[in-house]
Design a protein around this nucleic acid. Structure first.
Lengths: 281, 281
DNA sequence: ACTTGTGAATTCGTTCACAGCA
DNA sequence: TGCTGTGAACGAATTCACAAGT
Protein backbone atom coordinates (compact mmCIF):
# COMPACT_ATOMS: atom_id res chain seq x y z
CA UNK A 1 0.00 0.00 0.00
CA UNK A 2 0.86 3.05 -0.46
CA UNK A 3 0.87 5.84 1.58
CA UNK A 4 2.66 8.56 0.13
CA UNK A 5 4.68 10.28 2.57
CA UNK A 6 3.55 13.59 3.43
CA UNK A 7 4.06 15.34 0.40
CA UNK A 8 3.22 18.82 0.11
CA UNK A 9 -0.34 19.73 0.58
CA UNK A 10 -0.45 22.20 -2.14
CA UNK A 11 -2.98 24.88 -2.06
CA UNK A 12 -6.37 24.63 -3.35
CA UNK A 13 -5.98 23.77 -6.93
CA UNK A 14 -9.47 24.41 -7.96
CA UNK A 15 -11.39 27.52 -8.44
CA UNK A 16 -13.66 27.12 -5.54
CA UNK A 17 -17.06 27.63 -6.82
CA UNK A 18 -20.35 26.03 -6.13
CA UNK A 19 -22.57 26.33 -3.22
CA UNK A 20 -21.29 24.89 -0.04
CA UNK A 21 -23.41 22.32 1.44
CA UNK A 22 -25.06 19.72 -0.64
CA UNK A 23 -24.41 16.30 -1.45
CA UNK A 24 -21.37 14.29 -1.59
CA UNK A 25 -18.50 14.69 -3.74
CA UNK A 26 -19.67 15.11 -7.21
CA UNK A 27 -16.88 17.41 -7.87
CA UNK A 28 -17.34 20.49 -9.73
CA UNK A 29 -15.54 19.55 -12.82
CA UNK A 30 -17.70 20.23 -15.77
CA UNK A 31 -17.60 16.90 -17.25
CA UNK A 32 -14.64 14.75 -17.66
CA UNK A 33 -13.89 12.00 -15.34
CA UNK A 34 -11.67 12.50 -12.52
CA UNK A 35 -10.71 11.01 -9.40
CA UNK A 36 -8.41 11.05 -6.64
CA UNK A 37 -6.30 8.84 -4.82
CA UNK A 38 -6.18 5.90 -2.73
CA UNK A 39 -4.43 2.69 -2.59
CA UNK A 40 -5.35 -0.69 -1.74
CA UNK A 41 -5.28 -4.27 -1.91
CA UNK A 42 -4.99 -4.88 -5.45
CA UNK A 43 -4.46 -8.41 -5.76
CA UNK A 44 -5.16 -10.47 -8.68
CA UNK A 45 -2.00 -11.92 -9.91
CA UNK A 46 -2.60 -11.99 -13.50
CA UNK A 47 -1.77 -15.52 -13.82
CA UNK A 48 -1.87 -15.74 -17.54
CA UNK A 49 1.10 -15.28 -19.61
CA UNK A 50 0.92 -11.65 -19.53
CA UNK A 51 3.38 -10.75 -22.11
CA UNK A 52 5.18 -7.54 -21.72
CA UNK A 53 2.86 -5.87 -19.52
CA UNK A 54 2.95 -3.35 -16.88
CA UNK A 55 4.80 -0.33 -17.75
CA UNK A 56 2.63 1.76 -15.56
CA UNK A 57 2.84 0.97 -11.86
CA UNK A 58 -0.36 0.93 -9.85
CA UNK A 59 0.71 3.82 -7.72
CA UNK A 60 1.07 5.91 -10.81
CA UNK A 61 -2.32 4.92 -12.15
CA UNK A 62 -4.00 6.17 -9.01
CA UNK A 63 -2.19 9.46 -9.28
CA UNK A 64 -3.06 9.86 -12.93
CA UNK A 65 -6.67 10.06 -11.90
CA UNK A 66 -5.81 12.92 -9.60
CA UNK A 67 -3.83 14.73 -12.26
CA UNK A 68 -6.74 14.31 -14.58
CA UNK A 69 -9.07 16.08 -12.21
CA UNK A 70 -6.77 19.03 -11.97
CA UNK A 71 -6.18 19.06 -15.69
CA UNK A 72 -9.88 19.05 -16.39
CA UNK A 73 -10.27 22.08 -14.23
CA UNK A 74 -7.45 23.84 -15.96
CA UNK A 75 -8.90 22.97 -19.31
CA UNK A 76 -12.21 24.48 -18.26
CA UNK A 77 -10.38 27.61 -17.30
CA UNK A 78 -8.91 27.81 -20.71
CA UNK A 79 -5.34 27.18 -19.72
CA UNK A 80 -3.24 26.08 -22.63
CA UNK A 81 -0.24 24.67 -20.85
CA UNK A 82 0.96 23.76 -17.40
CA UNK A 83 4.36 23.19 -15.97
CA UNK A 84 5.11 20.06 -14.03
CA UNK A 85 5.71 22.26 -11.06
CA UNK A 86 2.27 23.79 -11.08
CA UNK A 87 0.41 20.62 -11.85
CA UNK A 88 2.30 18.78 -9.18
CA UNK A 89 1.52 21.40 -6.60
CA UNK A 90 -2.17 21.26 -7.40
CA UNK A 91 -2.17 17.50 -7.21
CA UNK A 92 -0.24 17.47 -3.99
CA UNK A 93 2.80 15.64 -5.22
CA UNK A 94 6.43 16.20 -5.94
CA UNK A 95 7.13 17.55 -9.41
CA UNK A 96 9.78 14.97 -10.16
CA UNK A 97 7.29 12.25 -9.41
CA UNK A 98 4.74 13.84 -11.64
CA UNK A 99 7.15 14.09 -14.51
CA UNK A 100 8.14 10.49 -14.07
CA UNK A 101 4.52 9.45 -13.98
CA UNK A 102 3.76 11.32 -17.15
CA UNK A 103 6.82 10.04 -18.90
CA UNK A 104 5.58 6.54 -18.16
CA UNK A 105 2.49 7.03 -20.21
CA UNK A 106 4.54 8.39 -23.02
CA UNK A 107 3.79 11.96 -22.41
CA UNK A 108 5.32 14.65 -24.36
CA UNK A 109 5.71 17.93 -22.71
CA UNK A 110 7.74 20.64 -24.27
CA UNK A 111 10.99 21.55 -22.62
CA UNK A 112 11.07 25.06 -21.52
CA UNK A 113 7.34 25.33 -21.85
CA UNK A 114 5.36 22.65 -20.10
CA UNK A 115 2.55 20.32 -21.06
CA UNK A 116 -0.30 21.03 -23.39
CA UNK A 117 -3.33 20.70 -21.18
CA UNK A 118 -5.86 19.35 -23.66
CA UNK A 119 -3.40 16.92 -25.07
CA UNK A 120 -2.41 15.68 -21.68
CA UNK A 121 -6.03 15.22 -20.73
CA UNK A 122 -6.50 13.08 -23.80
CA UNK A 123 -3.43 11.03 -23.03
CA UNK A 124 -4.35 10.40 -19.45
CA UNK A 125 -7.89 9.48 -20.37
CA UNK A 126 -6.61 7.10 -22.97
CA UNK A 127 -4.29 5.47 -20.48
CA UNK A 128 -7.01 5.08 -17.92
CA UNK A 129 -9.30 3.57 -20.49
CA UNK A 130 -11.79 6.38 -20.17
CA UNK A 131 -12.37 6.77 -23.85
CA UNK A 132 -15.34 4.51 -23.66
CA UNK A 133 -17.92 3.92 -20.97
CA UNK A 134 -17.77 1.02 -18.54
CA UNK A 135 -21.08 -0.48 -17.58
CA UNK A 136 -21.32 -0.81 -13.82
CA UNK A 137 -23.41 -3.19 -11.75
CA UNK A 138 -24.07 -2.18 -8.18
CA UNK A 139 -25.00 -4.90 -5.75
CA UNK A 140 -26.56 -4.02 -2.44
CA UNK A 141 -28.97 -1.13 -2.54
CA UNK A 142 -28.98 -0.45 1.15
CA UNK A 143 -27.78 2.57 2.97
CA UNK A 144 -24.57 3.19 1.14
CA UNK A 145 -25.57 1.39 -2.02
CA UNK A 146 -28.52 3.65 -2.44
CA UNK A 147 -26.40 6.71 -1.98
CA UNK A 148 -23.94 5.47 -4.54
CA UNK A 149 -26.64 4.62 -7.03
CA UNK A 150 -28.13 8.05 -6.66
CA UNK A 151 -24.79 9.64 -7.06
CA UNK A 152 -25.02 11.28 -10.40
CA UNK A 153 -21.41 11.97 -11.08
CA UNK A 154 -21.13 8.29 -11.38
CA UNK A 155 -22.74 7.87 -14.75
CA UNK A 156 -21.66 11.31 -15.78
CA UNK A 157 -18.09 10.25 -15.76
CA UNK A 158 -18.31 7.31 -18.04
CA UNK A 159 -19.49 4.75 -15.56
CA UNK A 160 -23.17 4.24 -16.30
CA UNK A 161 -24.99 2.17 -13.74
CA UNK A 162 -26.33 -0.59 -15.93
CA UNK A 163 -27.85 -2.68 -13.17
CA UNK A 164 -28.77 -2.68 -9.51
CA UNK A 165 -29.19 -5.79 -7.42
CA UNK A 166 -30.34 -6.72 -3.98
CA UNK A 167 -32.02 -9.65 -2.32
CA UNK A 168 -34.46 -7.69 -0.22
CA UNK A 169 -37.90 -8.29 -1.72
CA UNK A 170 -38.90 -4.86 -0.55
CA UNK A 171 -36.30 -3.34 -2.80
CA UNK A 172 -36.43 -5.60 -5.80
CA UNK A 173 -38.66 -4.04 -8.35
CA UNK A 174 -38.22 -0.51 -7.13
CA UNK A 175 -36.38 2.03 -9.18
CA UNK A 176 -33.46 4.12 -8.13
CA UNK A 177 -32.51 6.98 -10.31
CA UNK A 178 -34.15 5.36 -13.27
CA UNK A 179 -32.65 1.94 -12.84
CA UNK A 180 -34.67 -0.99 -11.64
CA UNK A 181 -33.43 -3.08 -8.75
CA UNK A 182 -33.29 -6.72 -9.69
CA UNK A 183 -32.81 -9.80 -7.61
CA UNK A 184 -29.26 -10.80 -6.95
CA UNK A 185 -29.95 -14.22 -8.35
CA UNK A 186 -30.07 -12.70 -11.77
CA UNK A 187 -26.61 -11.22 -11.59
CA UNK A 188 -24.98 -13.70 -13.93
CA UNK A 189 -27.54 -13.35 -16.67
CA UNK A 190 -28.13 -9.61 -16.43
CA UNK A 191 -24.49 -8.66 -16.16
CA UNK A 192 -23.53 -10.77 -19.13
CA UNK A 193 -26.40 -9.39 -21.16
CA UNK A 194 -25.56 -5.78 -20.46
CA UNK A 195 -21.86 -6.15 -20.79
CA UNK A 196 -21.05 -5.10 -17.27
CA UNK A 197 -17.33 -4.75 -16.78
CA UNK A 198 -17.17 -3.30 -13.31
CA UNK A 199 -19.01 -4.51 -10.26
CA UNK A 200 -19.52 -2.57 -7.06
CA UNK A 201 -20.23 -4.54 -3.91
CA UNK A 202 -22.07 -2.60 -1.24
CA UNK A 203 -23.63 -5.45 0.66
CA UNK A 204 -23.09 -6.52 4.25
CA UNK A 205 -19.89 -8.45 4.74
CA UNK A 206 -21.77 -11.70 5.04
CA UNK A 207 -23.08 -11.56 1.50
CA UNK A 208 -20.06 -10.06 -0.17
CA UNK A 209 -18.19 -13.19 -1.13
CA UNK A 210 -21.21 -14.82 -2.67
CA UNK A 211 -22.05 -11.72 -4.61
CA UNK A 212 -18.47 -11.46 -5.72
CA UNK A 213 -18.53 -15.03 -6.98
CA UNK A 214 -21.62 -14.29 -9.01
CA UNK A 215 -20.08 -11.22 -10.53
CA UNK A 216 -16.98 -13.13 -11.45
CA UNK A 217 -19.08 -15.88 -12.94
CA UNK A 218 -20.78 -13.25 -15.04
CA UNK A 219 -17.46 -12.22 -16.45
CA UNK A 220 -16.81 -9.16 -14.34
CA UNK A 221 -13.09 -8.77 -13.94
CA UNK A 222 -12.97 -5.57 -11.90
CA UNK A 223 -14.65 -5.14 -8.55
CA UNK A 224 -14.88 -2.31 -6.10
CA UNK A 225 -15.60 -3.67 -2.66
CA UNK A 226 -17.19 -1.60 0.08
CA UNK A 227 -17.94 -4.56 2.29
CA UNK A 228 -15.54 -5.10 5.16
CA UNK A 229 -14.24 -8.44 4.03
CA UNK A 230 -11.32 -9.69 2.08
CA UNK A 231 -12.72 -11.04 -1.13
CA UNK A 232 -11.18 -14.11 -2.61
CA UNK A 233 -11.10 -14.02 -6.37
CA UNK A 234 -9.46 -16.08 -9.07
CA UNK A 235 -6.39 -14.78 -10.78
CA UNK A 236 -7.16 -12.20 -13.37
CA UNK A 237 -9.79 -10.41 -11.35
CA UNK A 238 -8.97 -7.04 -9.94
CA UNK A 239 -10.41 -6.03 -6.58
CA UNK A 240 -10.09 -2.63 -5.01
CA UNK A 241 -11.46 -2.06 -1.59
CA UNK A 242 -12.83 0.87 0.26
CA UNK A 243 -13.08 0.28 3.96
CA UNK A 244 -14.44 2.93 6.26
CA UNK A 245 -13.53 1.05 9.38
CA UNK A 246 -9.92 0.85 8.31
CA UNK A 247 -9.78 4.54 7.54
CA UNK A 248 -11.27 5.49 10.86
CA UNK A 249 -8.94 3.22 12.73
CA UNK A 250 -5.90 4.55 10.98
CA UNK A 251 -6.98 8.03 11.98
CA UNK A 252 -7.58 6.78 15.47
CA UNK A 253 -4.03 5.56 15.54
CA UNK A 254 -2.76 8.99 14.71
CA UNK A 255 -4.95 10.64 17.27
CA UNK A 256 -3.63 8.28 19.86
CA UNK A 257 -0.09 8.79 18.76
CA UNK A 258 -0.43 12.46 19.39
CA UNK A 259 -1.77 12.70 22.86
CA UNK A 260 -0.11 9.72 24.36
CA UNK A 261 -3.17 8.33 26.00
CA UNK A 262 -5.22 11.26 26.87
CA UNK A 263 -8.59 11.23 25.23
CA UNK A 264 -10.02 14.33 23.78
CA UNK A 265 -10.54 15.78 27.16
CA UNK A 266 -10.60 19.48 27.38
CA UNK A 267 -11.97 21.62 24.62
CA UNK A 268 -8.75 21.55 22.81
CA UNK A 269 -7.89 24.99 23.80
CA UNK A 270 -5.24 25.62 21.26
CA UNK A 271 -6.86 27.86 18.77
CA UNK A 272 -4.67 26.65 16.02
CA UNK A 273 -5.54 28.41 12.91
CA UNK A 274 -2.24 27.91 11.44
CA UNK A 275 -0.84 29.00 8.22
CA UNK A 276 -1.51 25.91 6.34
CA UNK A 277 0.89 26.67 3.65
CA UNK A 278 2.77 24.36 1.58
CA UNK A 279 4.57 22.31 3.99
CA UNK A 280 8.10 21.39 3.73
CA UNK A 281 10.48 22.58 1.27
CA UNK B 1 13.28 17.63 3.79
CA UNK B 2 11.59 18.49 6.73
CA UNK B 3 10.00 15.39 7.48
CA UNK B 4 11.97 13.59 9.97
CA UNK B 5 11.09 10.20 8.93
CA UNK B 6 10.63 8.10 11.91
CA UNK B 7 14.00 7.01 12.72
CA UNK B 8 13.71 6.15 16.27
CA UNK B 9 13.17 2.46 16.77
CA UNK B 10 11.41 2.78 20.01
CA UNK B 11 8.81 0.23 20.67
CA UNK B 12 5.37 0.67 21.83
CA UNK B 13 4.59 0.47 25.48
CA UNK B 14 1.48 -1.55 25.01
CA UNK B 15 -0.02 -2.38 28.35
CA UNK B 16 -0.56 -5.98 27.85
CA UNK B 17 -3.44 -6.34 30.08
CA UNK B 18 -7.07 -6.56 29.65
CA UNK B 19 -9.39 -9.36 29.98
CA UNK B 20 -10.00 -11.52 27.02
CA UNK B 21 -13.16 -10.97 25.24
CA UNK B 22 -14.76 -7.90 26.54
CA UNK B 23 -15.71 -4.41 25.88
CA UNK B 24 -15.60 -2.06 23.10
CA UNK B 25 -15.65 -3.91 20.03
CA UNK B 26 -14.88 -2.74 16.69
CA UNK B 27 -16.33 -6.01 15.96
CA UNK B 28 -17.23 -7.43 12.72
CA UNK B 29 -19.74 -5.73 10.63
CA UNK B 30 -23.07 -5.65 12.16
CA UNK B 31 -24.71 -4.51 9.09
CA UNK B 32 -24.21 -2.31 6.22
CA UNK B 33 -21.45 -1.20 4.09
CA UNK B 34 -18.62 0.68 5.24
CA UNK B 35 -15.30 1.59 4.78
CA UNK B 36 -12.76 2.64 2.56
CA UNK B 37 -9.21 2.79 2.32
CA UNK B 38 -6.62 4.94 1.02
CA UNK B 39 -3.53 6.64 1.89
CA UNK B 40 -2.54 10.09 2.03
CA UNK B 41 -0.48 12.86 3.01
CA UNK B 42 0.71 12.15 6.36
CA UNK B 43 3.50 13.69 8.04
CA UNK B 44 3.60 16.70 9.96
CA UNK B 45 6.25 16.93 12.47
CA UNK B 46 4.30 17.48 15.54
CA UNK B 47 5.91 20.47 16.89
CA UNK B 48 6.03 19.48 20.49
CA UNK B 49 8.66 17.35 21.88
CA UNK B 50 7.44 14.15 20.57
CA UNK B 51 9.20 11.73 22.66
CA UNK B 52 9.41 8.33 21.20
CA UNK B 53 8.02 8.38 17.75
CA UNK B 54 7.04 6.05 15.02
CA UNK B 55 7.83 2.53 15.32
CA UNK B 56 4.85 1.45 13.32
CA UNK B 57 4.83 2.25 9.61
CA UNK B 58 1.63 3.50 8.10
CA UNK B 59 1.26 0.53 5.85
CA UNK B 60 1.28 -1.68 8.89
CA UNK B 61 -1.32 0.38 10.69
CA UNK B 62 -3.79 -0.06 7.85
CA UNK B 63 -3.26 -3.78 7.92
CA UNK B 64 -3.66 -3.97 11.66
CA UNK B 65 -7.23 -2.82 11.20
CA UNK B 66 -7.83 -5.69 8.85
CA UNK B 67 -6.24 -8.19 11.20
CA UNK B 68 -8.40 -6.85 13.95
CA UNK B 69 -11.55 -7.57 12.03
CA UNK B 70 -10.53 -11.14 11.45
CA UNK B 71 -9.41 -11.55 15.02
CA UNK B 72 -12.69 -10.25 16.34
CA UNK B 73 -14.51 -12.83 14.31
CA UNK B 74 -12.27 -15.56 15.59
CA UNK B 75 -12.79 -14.35 19.12
CA UNK B 76 -16.52 -14.51 18.65
CA UNK B 77 -16.15 -18.05 17.46
CA UNK B 78 -14.32 -18.90 20.59
CA UNK B 79 -10.97 -19.56 19.05
CA UNK B 80 -8.18 -19.45 21.57
CA UNK B 81 -5.19 -19.15 19.29
CA UNK B 82 -4.29 -18.57 15.68
CA UNK B 83 -1.17 -19.20 13.71
CA UNK B 84 0.32 -16.46 11.62
CA UNK B 85 -0.36 -18.62 8.64
CA UNK B 86 -4.08 -18.81 9.23
CA UNK B 87 -4.53 -15.22 10.24
CA UNK B 88 -2.53 -14.07 7.27
CA UNK B 89 -4.61 -16.13 4.89
CA UNK B 90 -7.80 -14.71 6.27
CA UNK B 91 -6.48 -11.20 6.01
CA UNK B 92 -5.22 -11.76 2.53
CA UNK B 93 -1.57 -11.16 3.21
CA UNK B 94 1.68 -13.01 3.36
CA UNK B 95 2.37 -14.66 6.69
CA UNK B 96 5.85 -13.26 6.96
CA UNK B 97 4.46 -9.81 6.56
CA UNK B 98 1.87 -10.46 9.19
CA UNK B 99 4.46 -11.66 11.66
CA UNK B 100 6.60 -8.66 10.99
CA UNK B 101 3.63 -6.37 11.48
CA UNK B 102 2.77 -7.98 14.75
CA UNK B 103 6.31 -7.94 15.97
CA UNK B 104 6.30 -4.21 15.38
CA UNK B 105 3.59 -3.65 17.89
CA UNK B 106 5.42 -5.76 20.37
CA UNK B 107 3.36 -8.81 19.91
CA UNK B 108 4.09 -11.94 21.65
CA UNK B 109 3.05 -15.09 20.00
CA UNK B 110 4.17 -18.40 21.29
CA UNK B 111 6.53 -20.37 19.11
CA UNK B 112 5.14 -23.63 18.10
CA UNK B 113 1.68 -22.51 19.09
CA UNK B 114 0.59 -19.23 17.62
CA UNK B 115 -1.00 -16.08 18.98
CA UNK B 116 -3.52 -15.82 21.73
CA UNK B 117 -6.53 -14.34 20.04
CA UNK B 118 -7.98 -12.29 22.83
CA UNK B 119 -4.63 -10.96 23.81
CA UNK B 120 -3.79 -10.01 20.28
CA UNK B 121 -7.11 -8.26 19.92
CA UNK B 122 -6.29 -6.21 22.96
CA UNK B 123 -2.84 -5.36 21.69
CA UNK B 124 -4.03 -4.31 18.29
CA UNK B 125 -6.81 -2.21 19.77
CA UNK B 126 -4.37 -0.55 22.08
CA UNK B 127 -2.04 0.24 19.23
CA UNK B 128 -4.81 1.67 17.11
CA UNK B 129 -5.98 3.76 19.99
CA UNK B 130 -9.34 2.04 20.11
CA UNK B 131 -9.44 1.74 23.84
CA UNK B 132 -11.42 4.90 24.04
CA UNK B 133 -14.01 6.46 21.77
CA UNK B 134 -13.21 9.20 19.30
CA UNK B 135 -15.91 11.79 18.79
CA UNK B 136 -16.56 12.31 15.12
CA UNK B 137 -17.98 15.33 13.32
CA UNK B 138 -19.47 14.74 9.91
CA UNK B 139 -19.75 17.69 7.58
CA UNK B 140 -22.02 17.51 4.57
CA UNK B 141 -25.23 15.67 5.13
CA UNK B 142 -26.05 15.13 1.51
CA UNK B 143 -26.31 11.97 -0.39
CA UNK B 144 -23.27 10.21 0.93
CA UNK B 145 -23.04 12.12 4.15
CA UNK B 146 -26.51 11.04 5.09
CA UNK B 147 -25.71 7.44 4.36
CA UNK B 148 -22.59 7.65 6.48
CA UNK B 149 -24.41 9.29 9.34
CA UNK B 150 -27.06 6.64 9.30
CA UNK B 151 -24.53 3.92 9.21
CA UNK B 152 -24.78 2.36 12.60
CA UNK B 153 -21.54 0.45 12.69
CA UNK B 154 -19.96 3.80 12.88
CA UNK B 155 -20.78 4.62 16.46
CA UNK B 156 -20.82 0.99 17.35
CA UNK B 157 -17.12 0.78 16.79
CA UNK B 158 -16.01 3.53 19.03
CA UNK B 159 -16.56 6.43 16.68
CA UNK B 160 -19.68 8.15 17.97
CA UNK B 161 -21.01 10.81 15.66
CA UNK B 162 -20.96 13.80 17.95
CA UNK B 163 -22.05 16.37 15.42
CA UNK B 164 -23.44 16.83 11.95
CA UNK B 165 -23.05 19.94 9.85
CA UNK B 166 -24.30 21.34 6.62
CA UNK B 167 -25.09 24.73 5.18
CA UNK B 168 -28.34 23.82 3.52
CA UNK B 169 -31.09 25.52 5.52
CA UNK B 170 -33.40 22.69 4.60
CA UNK B 171 -31.17 20.28 6.45
CA UNK B 172 -30.03 22.36 9.38
CA UNK B 173 -32.27 21.60 12.26
CA UNK B 174 -33.28 18.18 11.08
CA UNK B 175 -32.17 15.10 12.88
CA UNK B 176 -30.36 12.13 11.46
CA UNK B 177 -30.14 9.08 13.54
CA UNK B 178 -30.64 11.07 16.68
CA UNK B 179 -28.13 13.75 15.93
CA UNK B 180 -29.14 17.24 14.96
CA UNK B 181 -27.72 18.85 11.88
CA UNK B 182 -26.16 22.18 12.70
CA UNK B 183 -24.95 24.95 10.51
CA UNK B 184 -21.42 24.66 9.28
CA UNK B 185 -20.64 28.05 10.68
CA UNK B 186 -20.78 26.56 14.13
CA UNK B 187 -18.12 23.99 13.43
CA UNK B 188 -15.39 25.65 15.44
CA UNK B 189 -17.46 26.14 18.55
CA UNK B 190 -19.35 22.87 18.51
CA UNK B 191 -16.36 20.71 17.71
CA UNK B 192 -14.29 22.25 20.42
CA UNK B 193 -17.12 21.89 22.92
CA UNK B 194 -17.73 18.26 22.19
CA UNK B 195 -14.12 17.28 21.95
CA UNK B 196 -14.29 16.12 18.39
CA UNK B 197 -11.05 14.51 17.34
CA UNK B 198 -11.92 13.20 13.91
CA UNK B 199 -13.68 15.07 11.14
CA UNK B 200 -15.31 13.53 8.10
CA UNK B 201 -15.73 15.73 5.05
CA UNK B 202 -18.53 14.66 2.73
CA UNK B 203 -19.23 17.94 1.02
CA UNK B 204 -18.86 18.86 -2.62
CA UNK B 205 -15.29 19.53 -3.63
CA UNK B 206 -15.87 23.24 -3.72
CA UNK B 207 -16.67 23.43 -0.03
CA UNK B 208 -14.15 20.92 1.20
CA UNK B 209 -11.20 23.19 1.77
CA UNK B 210 -13.20 25.72 3.73
CA UNK B 211 -14.77 23.05 5.85
CA UNK B 212 -11.39 21.54 6.40
CA UNK B 213 -10.02 24.84 7.56
CA UNK B 214 -12.82 25.17 10.06
CA UNK B 215 -12.25 21.72 11.39
CA UNK B 216 -8.58 22.39 11.79
CA UNK B 217 -9.34 25.65 13.52
CA UNK B 218 -11.52 23.72 15.92
CA UNK B 219 -8.61 21.56 16.84
CA UNK B 220 -9.38 18.52 14.74
CA UNK B 221 -6.14 16.86 13.77
CA UNK B 222 -7.46 13.90 11.82
CA UNK B 223 -9.67 14.20 8.76
CA UNK B 224 -11.26 11.70 6.45
CA UNK B 225 -11.96 13.35 3.12
CA UNK B 226 -14.56 12.04 0.72
CA UNK B 227 -14.52 15.13 -1.45
CA UNK B 228 -12.52 14.90 -4.63
CA UNK B 229 -9.98 17.54 -3.80
CA UNK B 230 -6.54 17.65 -2.38
CA UNK B 231 -6.89 19.29 1.01
CA UNK B 232 -4.17 21.58 2.16
CA UNK B 233 -3.58 21.33 5.86
CA UNK B 234 -0.96 22.60 8.25
CA UNK B 235 1.68 20.27 9.53
CA UNK B 236 0.39 18.09 12.28
CA UNK B 237 -2.93 17.34 10.69
CA UNK B 238 -3.54 13.93 9.24
CA UNK B 239 -5.73 13.60 6.17
CA UNK B 240 -6.88 10.35 4.61
CA UNK B 241 -8.90 10.42 1.51
CA UNK B 242 -11.44 8.19 -0.06
CA UNK B 243 -12.18 8.91 -3.66
CA UNK B 244 -14.74 6.98 -5.59
CA UNK B 245 -13.70 8.45 -8.90
CA UNK B 246 -10.14 7.38 -8.46
CA UNK B 247 -11.16 3.87 -7.57
CA UNK B 248 -13.38 3.61 -10.59
CA UNK B 249 -10.71 4.95 -12.87
CA UNK B 250 -8.11 2.59 -11.58
CA UNK B 251 -10.48 -0.26 -12.29
CA UNK B 252 -11.13 1.23 -15.69
CA UNK B 253 -7.43 1.13 -16.33
CA UNK B 254 -7.34 -2.55 -15.59
CA UNK B 255 -10.34 -3.29 -17.72
CA UNK B 256 -8.67 -1.48 -20.57
CA UNK B 257 -5.40 -3.22 -20.00
CA UNK B 258 -7.08 -6.56 -20.43
CA UNK B 259 -9.04 -6.27 -23.60
CA UNK B 260 -6.80 -4.01 -25.52
CA UNK B 261 -9.46 -1.67 -26.66
CA UNK B 262 -12.52 -3.74 -27.02
CA UNK B 263 -15.37 -2.69 -24.80
CA UNK B 264 -17.35 -5.26 -22.96
CA UNK B 265 -18.58 -6.99 -26.04
CA UNK B 266 -19.55 -10.60 -25.86
CA UNK B 267 -21.17 -12.19 -22.86
CA UNK B 268 -17.92 -13.36 -21.51
CA UNK B 269 -18.67 -16.95 -21.84
CA UNK B 270 -15.90 -18.14 -19.64
CA UNK B 271 -17.54 -19.66 -16.65
CA UNK B 272 -14.66 -18.88 -14.42
CA UNK B 273 -15.50 -19.92 -11.03
CA UNK B 274 -12.04 -20.88 -10.29
CA UNK B 275 -10.35 -21.98 -7.21
CA UNK B 276 -10.51 -18.82 -5.37
CA UNK B 277 -7.72 -19.64 -3.17
CA UNK B 278 -6.87 -18.51 0.22
CA UNK B 279 -8.71 -16.22 2.37
CA UNK B 280 -11.89 -16.11 3.98
CA UNK B 281 -14.06 -18.37 5.74
C1' DA C 1 7.50 -31.03 15.22
C1' DC C 2 5.73 -26.74 14.81
C1' DT C 3 5.53 -21.80 14.65
C1' DT C 4 7.38 -17.34 15.89
C1' DG C 5 10.72 -13.51 15.33
C1' DT C 6 13.97 -11.37 12.51
C1' DG C 7 18.46 -10.38 9.73
C1' DA C 8 19.43 -10.23 4.99
C1' DA C 9 18.08 -10.02 0.25
C1' DT C 10 15.03 -8.17 -2.87
C1' DT C 11 11.63 -5.48 -5.00
C1' DC C 12 9.30 -1.33 -5.53
C1' DG C 13 8.71 3.54 -5.33
C1' DT C 14 10.41 8.21 -4.48
C1' DT C 15 13.61 11.89 -4.86
C1' DC C 16 17.72 14.00 -6.60
C1' DA C 17 20.18 16.27 -9.85
C1' DC C 18 21.50 17.21 -14.26
C1' DA C 19 21.91 16.64 -19.24
C1' DG C 20 19.28 17.93 -23.22
C1' DC C 21 16.25 20.54 -25.90
C1' DA C 22 13.02 24.42 -27.11
C1' DT D 1 16.82 30.73 -19.79
C1' DG D 2 13.29 27.42 -18.48
C1' DC D 3 11.46 23.15 -18.03
C1' DT D 4 11.23 18.35 -19.39
C1' DG D 5 12.93 13.61 -19.24
C1' DT D 6 15.63 10.34 -16.88
C1' DG D 7 19.82 7.80 -14.86
C1' DA D 8 21.33 7.09 -10.43
C1' DA D 9 20.94 7.45 -5.37
C1' DC D 10 18.11 6.58 -1.84
C1' DG D 11 14.68 4.76 1.12
C1' DA D 12 10.63 2.07 2.21
C1' DA D 13 8.21 -2.17 2.16
C1' DT D 14 7.95 -7.02 1.08
C1' DT D 15 9.64 -11.53 0.97
C1' DC D 16 12.93 -15.03 2.00
C1' DA D 17 14.80 -18.25 4.86
C1' DC D 18 16.40 -19.80 9.03
C1' DA D 19 17.76 -19.73 13.86
C1' DA D 20 15.48 -20.02 18.17
C1' DG D 21 11.97 -21.15 21.44
C1' DT D 22 8.44 -24.43 23.30
Amino acid sequence: MTVDRGTRPARRPVPTTRTPGDDLAPVDVPEGPDGSESSDSTESSDGDTDTASRPVPEATVARLAVYLRVLTTLLAEGRGTVSSEELAAAAGVNSAKLRKDLSLIGSSGVRGVGYDVSRLVAEVEATLGLTRPHAVALVGVGNLGHALAGYGGFAARGFPVAALFDVDPALVGTTVDGVEVEHADTIPRVCAERGVTIGVVATPASAAQTVCDHLVAAGVRSILNFAPTVLAVPAGVEVRKVDLAVEMQVLSFHVARRHGTVPAAGPTATPRQTPREAVSR
